[in-house]
Design a protein around this nucleic acid. Structure first.
Length: 686
DNA sequence: TTCGCGGTGA
């Protein structure tokens, strides 16, 4: 084929250029050839702009447009259309408004094609108001105008507006086409409006449009979003046309319904098909496995993906980063970070945020901070992630500072922001600052406090020992108090040894959350500490009768490439003997330094010596000892635990950190404890 | 000139 082409040296630069901007052209070559054209006409300019946009360089396309304008060219309809598409691809509203002005300046105000393109452009820039203005000013609207307006509303997360516009369109006598239908169905998904979705489905069936893949996948997605997995399945099974998107939609429908095996079955069939899978399908299945806790399967499929020659992209990375969090494996996280730097451009805000989260969750708040400040444009989730990171590390003041910085930089806080800030206040005993924020959130930021926020405040008051006030706060909640609120109060009753309040909170808690073993254990420990043996054993009896099993405590730590796991009294580690003799040996030094084992928290009928022994072999203590024995020159160790850290271990680890001279970081499900020089960052409130 | 899936925060 190539040999039949005339030598490119003999071609006129203009013709060579035209070939280079063609479907399989190379945009950089096109640019060089363009520069060789002595007097490029408006058509060549337009072709170059389009070529840049289609090759994924909308910014460069706009630069070409600026160049064209500087040279005093008058853009025509096609040139304006091409630059409108570039703006849409870039999503830059300021540029978009400039192009809109040019459309008016050059006399295309009432041009239908350009009007439609402008609606689409504003939609992609998430500026519904601008799109609506253009839409309203169109003297004649066709089905594309309506569809673009719909699509804009869906893009701007205004699904009700989309449905209203869709109805309006019908009243104006314009019939929807398949594109319109696949645009409006996601609005039903967003609203979880099964009725609207069914209505549109009925229209589709009546008009025989159901054999369109776009329509089918939108239908499957709509039913899945409305929790009608059976109907989603029916639509999928009755579809005659397939493509990879439709398969991805049904896979995610199954995944979000917890039906992993069905999803994986679809994926198997996709893999057996003739076409090579693209990123989308791999990412859908990897993400689905991750969300369903099938992390081994996710890793296996990630491996298969790489074997098949598809390189992980930003989305793949973002969805597998939580693997490092589960294991607390900062080493693996750094490897992935390195992969990103070597193979992909680190410019995607979502990946940045996932890295910030990973580092914070793996215990390294400093690295987390550093990545955070590298994010060029921080959105609400990015700020929230950093705020929550600081809160869980007991840095309430920093969380408050970040919150102020976020607001002054013009990013709107949402309800998650306040959960982060308030929990930060409560972990750092900034009760009054917390109360101020709590009262300001509705008034100044328009965010209605939900039960999480109330729970945070109950928690803050409880930790500060203001138990009566916390109790009043619970009673004045406009919604049913959550288990979290009562749980905070009960936890504080343990710290402040308030048995009467514990009785009240415990009763509520066992009613709301009868299946949570932790509540029984906590309540029985409080009774035990208060020497109310009978009440304590009654709670344990109740727990047995209800068949509630304690979740076994488990701690883990990474040393070199391996994650080592410990349970109570664990003897499976290769260094078991060393661990126990170390704990006995250092136990003497701890006692001399003033450590008193607090034996009454072990709610079993053992004598004092046995109790002390059973504290000494808690999983977190074994993991810490193992970490110290394998320090290898490091100055800190990181231990992770599935349950809240035990009070006596918390005390013991403070002494351990001082005696050994290391920083010990322990993550429990709620927060981080940084032990250093005999103190903990939680200031003994947790 | 308009369309469907996949990734981040409690």
């Amino acid at each position: 084929m190539l040999s039949k082409l005339p030598s490119r040296f003999g071609l006129h630069p203009n013709l060579q250029f035209l070939r280079a901007v063609g479907p399989s052209g190379d945009v950089r070559r096109a640019r060089r050839l363009f520069d060789e054209i002595p007097h490029p006409d408006i058509r060549s300019w337009t072709l170059l702009i389009t070529a840049y946009t289609k090759s994924g360089f909308p910014k460069e396309a706009l630069e070409v447009y600026d160049e064209l304008r500087e040279r005093k060219f008058h853009p025509d309809q096609l040139a304006l259309l091409s630059v409108t598409k570039a703006c849409a691809a870039l999503g830059n509203l300021i540029k978009a408004k400039g192009v809109h002005e040019d459309v008016i300046r050059y006399g295309y105000r009432s041009d239908l094609l350009l009007g439609n393109a402008l609606i689409d452009m504003y939609g992609k820039c998430k500026y519904a108001q601008g799109a609506r203005e253009v839409f309203d000013n169109l003297s004649a609207k066709d089905v594309i105008s309506w569809t673009s307006m719909n699509s804009c509303y869906v893009n701007c997360k205004l699904p009700s507006e989309a449905l209203i516009t869709f109805r309006e369109m019908g009243l104006n006598g314009v019939r929807p086409n398949p594109v319109t239908l696949s645009t409006v169905l996601p609005a039903c998904s967003g609203l979880k409006s099964l009725n609207s979705g069914r209505e549109i489905h009925a229209y589709i069936v009546r008009n025989g449009i159901h054999d369109n893949v776009y329509v089918s996948s939108a239908l499957v997605d709509m039913y899945a979003s409305c929790s009608s997995i059976k109907q989603a399945e029916t639509v999928f099974n009755s579809t005659r046309q397939f493509d990879h998107v439709l398969c991805n939609v049904i896979m995610s429908a199954y995944f979000s319904n917890g039906e992993c095996d069905k999803a994986l079955h679809i994926f198997d069939q996709l893999q057996k098909g003739r076409t090579k899978l693209n990123h989308d399908s791999w990412n859908s299945v990897i993400g689905g496995c991750m969300q369903n806790g099938r992390t081994d399967k996710a890793l296996q499929i990630l491996h298969e993906m790489q074997q098949s020659g598809v390189k992980p992209n930003n989305i793949t990375i973002t969805s597998v980063l939580p693997l490092c969090i589960d294991l607390g494996s900062i080493r693996r996280g750094k490897e992935i970070h390195g992969f990103l730097l070597r193979h992909l451009f680190l410019e995607d805000e979502t990946v940045f945020t996932a890295l910030v989260f990973m580092y914070a969750k793996c215990g390294d708040l400093e690295l987390s901070n550093r990545v955070f400040y590298m994010i060029p444009k921080k959105d609400t989730i990015a700020w929230n992630t950093m705020i929550i990171g600081n809160s869980t590390h007991g840095k309430g003041e920093e969380a408050l500072l970040l919150f102020r910085e976020m607001v002054s930089s013009g990013v709107k806080p949402n309800s998650v922001t306040f959960t982060g800030v308030l929990s930060g206040c409560s972990h750092s005993q900034l009760v009054d600052k917390g109360l101020m924020i709590f009262y300001a959130m509705r008034k100044e930021h328009g965010v209605e406090p939900d039960s999480e926020h109330y729970s945070c405040m109950v928690d803050a008051l409880s930790r500060a020992g203001r138990l009566e006030q916390a109790y009043n706060f619970i009673q004045n909640m406009p919604m049913k108090p959550s288990a979290g609120a009562w749980g905070s109060l009960l936890g504080a009753c343990r710290v402040y040894k308030n048995v009467e309040m514990a009785r009240v909170a415990g009763k509520q808690l066992l009613e709301i959350e009868p299946e949570n073993a932790g509540n029984y254990v906590l309540l029985s420990n409080i009774y035990e500490t208060a020497k109310l043996r009978e009440e304590a054993s009654e709670i344990r009896k109740l727990m047995r009768e209800r068949g509630i099993m304690k979740v076994p405590g488990c701690s883990w730590i990474q040393v070199k490439d391996k994650v080592h796991t410990f349970v109570v009294g664990d003897k499976n580690n290769a260094q078991t003997a060393e661990i126990y003799s170390f704990l006995i040996e250092v136990g003497e030094k701890m006692r001399l330094a003033g450590y008193l084992p607090c034996t009454d928290l072990v709610g079993q009928d053992l004598d004092a010596e046995e109790k002390e022994y059973s504290l000494c072999n808690h999983s977190e203590r074994l993991a810490v000892a193992f970490g110290i024995l394998n320090l290898d020159g490091a100055s800190s160790i990181r231990v992770f635990k599935n349950l809240r850290i035990c009070g006596d271990c918390h005390n013991a680890i403070k002494y351990l950190a001082k005696i050994v001279g290391v920083q010990i970081i322990v993550r429990d499900p709620l927060r981080f404890h940084h032990f250093k020089d005999g103190l903990c960052s939680c200031r003994d409130f947790w």
